[in-house]
Design a protein around this nucleic acid. Structure first.
Lengths: 240, 240
DNA sequence: TCTTTTAATTGCTATAATAGCAATATGAAA
DNA sequence: TTTCATATTGCTATTATAGCAATTAAAAGA
């Protein structure tokens, strides 16, 4: 982890954390919820939300809860431009459709994975796969496990302090077991309720995203798919 | 414009402005450039950039200039999820391809328009149109003019203070002439070097984006296209 | 409809962060 | 190697902030 600068701008750090929580919440959220989720003092959360509201990045909805405001469209597009990941990754991910598996690209923030691309059994064209932007618990996602495995144990414990852990993992102990396996293997592997596997590898060093193939029969040789995923990582990384 | 809250978080406001400038810059930028562009004190810009660096949202490149860091991918995906605009707009924009015109969706920030979607003469499928994420001077864009027309004259003057104004507009006086026309018409109309028209309307109230059709022959009846654009706006607005 | 409960919002002020000047350090350019 | 331009940091007076508690505003319940 990078060293904290001598005079960090704490309003920027905390403010962005609050904004992120807004963006990945499926419904409007209360000051109280954010305060508890992020461990921030209630008044501070309120002041941040009112500042985001002023900037157009949040707005107060019914029941005095907050949701993203119209300014989020502007920030989203600007961030996508600055990121350039969509442009680089799309052709590579589209190429993976030939395997008829589910393809995903996602990122981790705290205990959640956000998907930029998710192509269920490769059935969709790119814009449907992109349009399936969604958030899932990190513990229930092979990408989530892969990316959590890059964090320090203490940081992981802090993230999950006071949080429930989603099925199928169910406990912090089980989560760590999966994380340790991922560290050892260099990829993560999760089996779903149907007995199929989801395999994920990390993108970037240090990792900022993960890509996954899932729907793999559990008796198949997974080394083939790990190789395919790692080649995709190399291609995405190489594209200008 | 919304009222400034009693205790705004100034680090969040200024910090996000700096981040935006990073995201839309085609190459790494210096502290000095950002200071002059945004009118911020140099040391403050440096502190903000160091904080963004710490957060992973910026990193220091060669020649001590800054560019977006790997964390921008995470913020980009989260913002896109919180925005939901891509999912809503894509089907509507794809429908417009039947007119064989150039289709665009973009947003305004300061003197720049950022395009989420830009489909040159409708030739591309969605993912190429999305992948053409780019930034252009607002004054050279029909979407830019349409969105600038929503701002107060004083705010526009402040944005362009000390900035050069891109061709074909060329001067602040010409820019205001186009803006006044857009306010009067309820849409903006720009003619390019080839004598074709670009028409844009605003999306959202207050507007947060614009959509445009361009490559229209200057002798065509534009009311047809204005109607089409306004219908598209209604469709995008209506989709959940 | 009225009362109670919950939580957002704001007043207030001691504390800590910050703004920003100027000095220093670091690369880039000559 | 020297010079120049700009990033970075030291320093401190000033201002913003943190956060408690009071007040206000909804939501929920009777």
């Amino acid at each position: 982890m990078k060293k904290l600068p001598a005079q960090p701008v704490s309003g920027l750090m905390d403010g962005l954390e609050v904004l992120r929580e807004l963006t990945i919440s499926a419904s409007p959220v209360s000051c109280k919820h954010i305060s508890e989720k992020l461990g921030f003092e209630l008044t501070r959360v309120n002041r941040i939300l009112k500042t985001l509201d002023y900037m157009g990045l949040a707005c107060r909805g019914p029941s005095r809860r907050y949701l993203p405001g119209p300014g989020i469209h502007v920030l989203a597009i600007q961030s996508m431009i600055g990121s350039g990941l969509l442009k680089r990754a799309l052709p590579v991910l589209e190429e993976l459709r030939k395997y008829k598996l589910t393809i995903a690209l996602g990122v981790l923030w705290r205990d959640s994975v956000s998907y930029l691309y998710h192509n269920d059994l490769s059935r969709f064209n790119a814009y449907d796969a992109i349009g399936r932007l969604a958030v899932h618990p990190a513990g229930a996602s092979s990408i989530g496990i892969a990316l959590l495995s890059e964090l320090e144990d203490s940081e992981i414990r802090q993230i999950y302090e006071g949080q429930e852990i989603a099925q199928p993992i169910g406990s912090l102990e089980s989560l760590f077991k999966e994380i340790y396996k991922s560290r050892e293997n260099g990829f993560s592997s999760i089996m779903n309720a149907k007995g199929n596997l989801s395999l994920a590898v990390k993108l970037g060093n240090p990792a900022y995203a993960g890509i996954a193939l899932s729907g793999i029969a559990s008796d198949e040789d997974i080394t083939k798919y790990i190789k395919i995923l790692n080649e995709s990582v190399d291609k995405i990384g190489a594209v200008k």
